[in-house]
Design a protein around this nucleic acid. Structure first.
Lengths: 232, 232
DNA sequence: TCGAATAATATGTACATACATATTAAGTCA
DNA sequence: TGACTTAATATGTATGTACATATTATTCGA
C-alpha cells in the first residue's frame, strides 16, 4: 500500500522519488511510473509531479524522454557547480583582511594562444590588467585579465589601481554567458614574484571567459597561491 | 509601444529578458517589472513569466525575493558546471583507445586527512583501489579510490582487474549527492611511476565524494596527466 | 517482407484561477 | 518616538484543462 505523503508539494514528491532511489526500489536504468500514475498514487496533480521530476532531471538524477518515459540516470549527476565569487568577498568571508595591488595595466594584443577566443574583437588591442589579491597581507591570487574595449568602453577610463577589475566589471556590466577551465601549472618567475611561490610549485589556475550576448567581455586567469582548493 | 513576441513560450520570454539585459536596458542591481506586468506586456500568462524568470534565477542572472521583486543579479553567480564523465567514455570520445590497469586493491583504513569525511563508516576498513586509465597506451589519469563497504557490500566481490571501479559503481548504484574539489599537486613518486610524469610536474586533481541518501559511497581522487584541462 | 503512413503515448507547455508565504510598508497605541 | 500589529504586495505553488511535440508502436499497402 502506498500512502500519500502528507504534503502535496513538488518538493515532497521530489523527496519521495529520492527516497525510492536511495532505498534502491529504483536502480540505474530502471523506468519509473509515468507522471499521471505517480500523480494518482501520490494524490497530487500531474503538473506537480512534472515539476518534481523536471527538477531531478535538471540535477542529472533522472533521464526523461517524450513517450519513452522517465528512468533513473545510468550515468549519474556528472555535474558540479563551482562558485566563482568576487575575490574580495571570498577573502573577507574567511575573516581575513583584503588587500589589492595593481601590477600592470596596458593596451596590447592578446597572446596568440588566447586571441582566437575573442573572435573579431580580439584582433585589436585589449586592455590587459595584472593584479594581485592579498589576504592578511599575504598573496592569495594573481589576476591576469584581458578586457575587450569594444564591449566595455568605460573600462578604459578606469585605472584599476584601487578597485579590482574583477569587482568593477561585476558592478557595471551584466553577463549572459560564462565558461571556465581549470588546470595546473608550475610556478614560473611571474608567480614566484607575485604570489611568493617557490619556483616550480604546483598552482591551480581558473581561467574564465564571459560574454554579454555574443560579445566577449573579458577573459581572466586567476592563479591561486599554493595549496588552494576550489570547492563546489 | 512594446510589441509582443510572436511566441508565448517561456523560452521566448527568457530570450526577451536576456535581450534586455544584453541591451543594457536593465543593468546589475536594477529592479525589473513584476511578473503580472511583464505578463501583460508580453501577452502571456503570469505562470509563463514565472517559469522564465525562475529559469534565469537558477542560472544566477536574476535575484528574486517575495514582495521585494526581481532584479538583475549584482554578483553574477558564475556557476560553472563541470562534467564528471566515465573516464573510458571521455577517452573514447576523443577517438583514442581506452586502456585500464589495476595497480592495487586492498582493505584498509582511510588516511587521517580523509577519514573524517566518511563519518562513522570511515572508522572501519574501506576498500582502497588504485588504478590507471590509459589513452592510446599512454597514462591519462590515476584513480585513487576509497569505497565504503557498508554502503556498497557488493563491491567486495569485485576484483576491479578488468572493469574500472569508476564504471562498476556507476552501473550498479544510484547516487543522490556529490561534491567536488579541485587542486594542484607536484608529481611525487607515485605519479611519476603511474602517470609517467616528471618529478615535481604540476598536475591537477579532481577529488570527488558521493553519497546515497546520507550514506557515503566513495571518495575518489583523479589525478590527470600533465597538461590536462578540466572544462565546464 | 519492407517501408511508409498512422495511431498511441508520455512528456512538455500554456493558461486561468486560487491560495500560500515571505517581506516590506503603513498604521496604531502606549 | 518606538515597539507592535496589520495591511499590502510580489513571488511561490497547486490544480484542471487543453493542446503541442517527440518518439515509439502499429497498421497497411506495394
Amino acid at each position: 500500500m502506498t500512502d500519500a505523503p502528507a504534503s502535496h508539494s513538488w518538493r515532497s514528491v521530489r523527496e519521495e522519488v529520492l527516497r525510492r532511489i536511495a532505498h534502491e526500489d529504483w536502480r540505474p536504468g530502471d523506468a519509473i511510473p509515468n507522471e499521471a500514475d505517480l500523480a494518482a498514487e501520490l494524490g497530487c496533480a500531474r503538473a506537480t509531479v512534472n515539476r518534481a521530476l523536471r527538477s531531478l532531471s535538471d540535477d542529472g538524477l533522472l533521464e526523461r524522454r517524450r513517450k519513452g518515459g522517465t528512468r533513473i540516470a545510468r550515468h549519474p549527476v556528472g555535474k558540479a557547480t563551482v562558485r566563482i565569487p568576487i575575490i574580495r568577498m571570498e577573502i573577507e568571508e574567511r575573516g581575513a583582511l583584503y588587500g589589492y595591488r595593481l601590477l600592470d595595466r596596458r593596451m596590447e594584443r592578446a597572446p596568440d594562444a588566447l586571441r582566437p577566443r575573442f573572435g573579431p574583437p580580439g584582433e585589436g588591442d585589449l586592455l590587459h590588467v595584472i593584479a594581485v589579491h592579498l589576504a592578511d597581507g599575504r598573496p592569495y591570487a594573481l589576476e591576469n585579465r584581458w578586457i575587450v574595449p569594444e564591449t566595455v568602453p568605460d573600462a578604459l577610463d578606469q585605472s584599476f589601481e584601487d578597485l579590482a577589475a574583477n569587482e568593477w566589471l561585476v558592478r557595471h556590466l551584466p553577463l549572459t554567458r560564462a565558461q571556465s577551465e581549470f588546470f595546473a601549472i608550475n610556478a614560473t618567475d611571474r608567480e614566484t614574484a607575485a604570489l611568493g611561490a617557490a619556483a616550480g610549485e604546483a598552482l591551480i589556475v581558473h581561467r574564465r571567459m564571459t560574454w554579454l550576448a555574443e560579445r566577449p567581455i573579458t577573459l581572466v586567469e586567476m592563479t591561486f597561491a599554493k595549496g588552494h582548493t576550489l570547492r563546489t
